[in-house]
């Protein structure tokens, strides 16, 4: 198990019900963590509509997670 800090924005924040949490997880990758959270909290967005960011940089879904990192899942953007 590792412990990661997760921040939620926009539709994911509303569906999770909190803006941030610190969570212990068996997930080894960003993809596994999103799948775990989606199954637990019923996120409407499938993983292929979302991007992952670790420690303020976009990362590939198969990126390994390490203890203490900050993970953010990025729903489809809509600036402008």
């Amino acid at each position: 198990m590792i412990t990661v800090h997760i921040q939620y924005f926009a539709i994911l924040r509303e569906q999770r019900g909190v803006a941030r949490e610190t969570r212990s997880t068996p997930a080894g990758t960003a993809a596994a963590l999103y799948d775990e959270l989606r199954a637990r909290y019923g996120f409407s967005l499938p993983r292929d509509r979302v991007r992952a960011a670790v420690d303020e940089s976009f990362v590939a879904w198969d990126t390994s997670l390490r203890d203490g990192q900050t993970v953010v899942f990025i729903p489809p953007v809509a600036g402008g």
Partner: peptide, 13 residues
């Protein structure tokens, strides 16, 4: 502006 709309993590409700 095109790249900003496509890539920057900003959301609109």
């Amino acid at each position: 502006i095109d790249e900003t709309k496509a890539r920057v993590p900003v959301w609109k409700k």
